[in-house]
């Protein structure tokens, strides 16, 4: 019983993995920055504090994207 190969993907699967990994953080950071913009437009005087919170959130969200990149390179 030979199994025939119908389709084949060659190359590094890690790149596909990283491509998938960028979806979540991309959307997450987009929402984060958008909400910060909205809130700053509503209340410009707290813009500083909002920006700081945005960076903290961005650090956490971007971590996932970076773990995706690293996993692709390491394994």
């Amino acid at each position: 019983m030979d199994s025939t190969t119908l389709a084949q993907v060659t190359g590094n699967v890690a790149t596909i993995g990283y491509g998938l990994a960028t979806l979540g953080p991309g959307i997450g950071i987009g929402i984060l920055v958008a909400k910060t913009q909205e809130a700053t437009a509503r209340q410009p005087e707290v813009a500083g504090q909002l920006r700081i919170n945005m960076f903290i959130g961005m650090a956490l969200v971007e971590a996932l994207g970076l773990i995706g990149l690293v996993a692709g390179l390491v394994f």
Partner: peptide
Amino acid sequence: VLRPATLTIRLMA
């Protein structure tokens, strides 16, 4: 773990 790791990797990547 994650804080120094992500700092490193963010800059490097």
